[in-house]
């Protein structure tokens, strides 16, 4: 290993950098899903929302030259899909998981359809905040480029926690999610609250898509999400429907994406399939350690996966 490079320090650095770069999509989608599931409905379609968000952000940024407008558009596109999902799942005898799968296909379908002309052109990207200027090492500098969107996500997580715990609206959502009958007795419109929660959740997921196409990896291709939306939906269960734990789970998954490549780049060449699978192994371990035969999952909204 040459002296001027950082050698083995590259592994922790790459994991930190990967966490900073790669966890925002997980974060936004899982926060959105957390909000949705707290109201008692599942939105599996966020994978499609992520793709549509990525496409509309890239397209808007290319057409108007303003990436921030793209971020907004991604959110709006997400809300549009959320609206459809919210409308469908509240019809009688409709299963939200089945609708979610349909929405994955629908969302990715329209994203691919409208996204065709935007694969080739290069759109302006989101700027990054440089926090690494104190260092002379270019790789440290590059690792500490932080997207403002990521900081926004970091701020939303505790804010959402506080929202659920301490605000009237948060109570409404929890009530609707835990016991729709009780909520109705309180005089809350279950449909309206769920509608708003799903739409707001999809808005966040759309922003996650904008991060993918406008910041990291920073281009629009049809494979851009590579299943991250679905992973993030699963993260919510892993995080026990707690926004701050969603943040930790997203950081874990974002960082672990970097493990495989980082180890190979310092010369650990074998077992890369195993290293690439490390987040899943870790998830399984945590699930096994934290599960108990004596109680059900804590924190699960009572009305989740029920028919009302």
């Amino acid at each position: 290993m040459a002296t001027e490079t950082i050698g083995w320090w590259g592994v922790p650095l790459a994991i930190i950098a990967g966490t900073i770069r790669g966890s925002a999509p997980f974060l936004f989608v899982s926060l959105g899903e957390c909000l949705t599931e707290k109201s008692g409905k599942i939105n599996l379609g966020l994978e499609g929302t992520l793709l549509l968000g990525a496409m509309s952000a890239y397209a808007t940024s290319y057409l108007t030259g303003s990436p921030w407008l793209g971020v907004l558009m991604a959110g709006v596109a997400g809300m549009f899909l959320g609206l459809i999902h919210a409308f469908l799942v509240q019809q009688p005898k409709v299963n939200d998981i089945a609708v979610g799968i349909a929405m994955i296909i629908f969302g990715s379908g329209i994203a691919f359809f409208f996204g065709k002309p935007f694969i080739q052109p290069v759109a302006p990207r989101l700027p990054a905040i440089e926090l690494g200027n104190w260092s002379d090492i270019p790789s440290v500098k590059a690792a500490l480029q932080i997207s403002p969107l990521f900081i926004l996500g970091l701020a939303i997580a505790p804010l959402m926690q506080w929202f659920f715990r301490s605000t009237r609206w948060g109570l409404f959502i929890r009530a609707v999610g835990d016991s729709p009958e009780a909520a109705k007795a309180m005089g809350i419109s279950v449909n309206k609250v769920r509608m708003l929660a799903i739409i707001a959740g999809s808005f966040l997921a759309g922003i996650g898509g904008a991060y993918l196409s406008l910041y990291y990896p920073g281009s629009w291709t049809e494979r851009i999400s590579s299943g991250q939306g679905l992973m993030a939906v699963a993260l919510v269960i892993f995080a026990r429907w707690n926004p701050v734990q969603c943040l930790y789970a997203s950081l874990l998954f974002g960082g672990s994406q970097a493990i495989g490549p980082a180890l190979q780049s310092v010369g650990v060449t074998g077992y890369y399939y195993l290293f690439n699978a490390s987040p899943y192994i870790l998830t399984l371990l945590i699930m096994i350690i934290t599960c108990s035969p004596k109680r059900t999952l804590s924190g699960v909204p009572g009305a989740l996966t029920t028919q009302n």
Binding site: A2, E4, T5, I6, G7, G10, L13, A14, A17, G18, R21, G22, S139, A142, A143, Y216, P217, G218, S219, T221, R223, I224, S226, Q228, Q257, A258, G260, P261, A262, Q264, S265, V266, Y272, Y273, N276
Partner: peptide
Amino acid sequence: TQVIFTGDWSLPVKEAEATNSMIDQGV
């Protein structure tokens, strides 16, 4: 030549990570 296998034909995020890791190592 440093080679990094991502494990599949189309994984944009991993490809970007691999590129960044190698650049950090002086490639």
